[in-house]
Design a binder for these strands. Structure first.
Length: 430
RNA sequence: GGAGAGGUGGCCGAGUGGUCGAAGGCGCACGCUUGGAAAGCGUGUAUACCGGAAACGGUAUCGCAGGUUCAAAUCCUGUCCUCUCCGCCA
């Protein structure tokens, strides 16, 4: 969410930002509503002020003077009710509009419409040149009894999967390696709720917007608001300190959330239907940073969390590239966004494995996540997040890239300590 | 699922109709005191919005929503959350 005062003072910047992101947003309507709001508010508060002043005197008054005061109070009360009635629809529309306001992208964000317009920033490693016909991860896994999609479908519907045997150990090894790496860089591991109240989704700016992509709970144990399953622990971790005024001395906060993630993937019928690329439930380690409202520091954090993710991909010995997500593909809240894409032989291309977002105060304002700076002034924080590692998608890259001519799969060195020192998975039994 | 207790400022905790944005304490900041420190003393210490160049003024906020009243932290209704006990279950 943008600050209303910011929109008031920078209407052109906001308008231009919305255009660049290809998001419809009526700045003029917001300005008109804001003016209306302030006009009514002033009248309402003046009436209320007189009411309060008079009300205090009433107790000391007698006879006619008292009756007169009471009559005046009555009319003031009616006047106040009138103002309130006039204000309500203005506020309702203004709040709704404000929640839709897109955060202007940084000047350096590449222009574009879709992910096809994203710009490659750098590339690491090269796609393996197989001297044999490489198998895709589904074949590699099925041959070993590691994957059962058919029975999973019966249990959990489409886009379900069951990992078995070494695939489970490999998955856990990858998650744990990622968690250890991020923890060693000062991020506090956090195991957080995946079942959350709607406020957390609204606060992190997923709602309104992503309701269709999110699983809603039919019978939550609380009734004050809807309950949902998060699509990423970013939601829980970023909202963790919501409503607090943080001490600048404890910033930046660095958290590493670990959780299952749930996504409905509505509207993706027929897309990525084979294998583990697009599933409804997966596991992820996520990095989140909360810091002071300083664009340069935020930018430095963004580069840091991208580097952390790159180091995970390097540890997995995967070729990858970093892309700067273009204006049309980046979403309402982000000021800048990088995707990291690992090489996936079966896709004959790079597939997204990480997504790093810099929000400035967009999420924090909704979350009411603030801090007191050196001068004692309360300010809204900046937030960022990025994947550390997510499975099973990354399994695709790991298994496919590391398959050998003899049918074995080499285990990246960084994972071996987590797999009892094994160096490779043997070829499947004939 | 059943029974009970409770939700007040950064924290503890007082407050049952106006003088309460809220006593007192702790914490924190600044100052005095001191060779230095502690103790002691003094002063200050919420957030949002509106108006104002500013000084400052106004409005709102005692879990949340609504009601009674000229006036609500205080009375009424609903609701959410937390805790304790019983039951059930992992």
């Amino acid at each position: 969410m943008l600050d209303l005062a910011f929109i008031r003072e920078n209407p052109d910047l906001v308008r231009r930002g919305a255009q660049r992101k290809r998001i419809a947003f009526d700045v003029d309507r917001v300005l008109a509503l804001d003016g209306e709001r302030r006009r009514i508010l002033l009248a309402q508060e003046n009436a209320k002020a007189e009411q309060n002043r008079l009300g205090k005197q009433v107790a000391t008054l007698q006879g006619d003077a008292k009756q007169e005061a009471l009559a005046r109070l009555k009319s003031l009360k009616e006047e106040g009710a009138g103002h309130e009635a006039a204000l309500a629809p203005v506020m309702r529309e203004l709040d709704a509009l404000l929640r839709q306001a897109p955060n202007p992208p940084a000047d350096s964000v590449p222009e574009g419409l879709t992910d096809a317009d994203n710009v490659e920033v750098r590339r690491h490693g090269t796609a393996p040149a197989f001297a044999f016909a490489p198998k895709d991860h589904v074949d590699l896994m099925t041959a070993r009894g590691w994957l059962d999609v058919d029975r999973a479908g019966r249990l959990g519907g489409s886009r379900s999967y069951i990992l078995k045997g070494d695939a489970v150990l490999l998955e856990q090894a990858i998650l744990r390696m990622g968690l250890d790496l991020i923890a060693s860089r000062g991020f506090t591991p956090m195991s957080v709720p995946v079942l959350v109240k709607e406020a957390a989704l609204v606060g992190t700016a997923y709602f309104p917007g992503a309701e269709e992509q999110t699983y809603k709970i039919e019978n939550p144990t609380f009734e004050d608001q809807a309950a949902w399953l998060v699509g990423t622990s970013e939601v829980s971790v970023t909202a963790y300190r919501a409503g607090e005024i943080l001490d600048a001395a404890e910033l930046p906060l660095r958290y590493a959330g670990i959780s299952p993630c749930f996504r409905r993937e509505a509207g993706t019928y027929g897309k990525d239907t084979r294998g583990l690329y697009r599933v409804h439930q997966f596991n992820k380690v996520e990095q989140v940073i909360v810091d002071v409202a300083d664009p340069e520091r935020s930018r430095a954090h963004l580069e840091d969390i991208v580097r952390n993710a790159e180091d995970v991909l390097k540890a997995l010995e995967l070729p990858y590239r970093v892309v700067a997500v273009c204006t049309g593909d980046m979403g309402r809240g982000q000021v800048y966004k990088y995707d990291l894409e690992a090489w996936m032989p079966s896709r004959k291309g790079y597939g997204e494995t990480h997504s790093a977002s810099m929000f400035h105060d967009f999420q924090a304002r909704r979350l009411d996540l603030r801090y007191r700076d050196k001068d004692g002034k309360v300010r809204v924080c900046h937030t960022l997040n990025n994947t550390v590692v997510a499975t099973p998608r990354v399994l695709i890259a790991v298994l496919e890239n590391h398959q050998q001519a003899d049918g074995s799969i080499t285990i990246p060195k960084a994972l071996r300590p987590y797999l009892g020192g094994r160096e490779a998975f043997a070829p499947p039994k004939a």
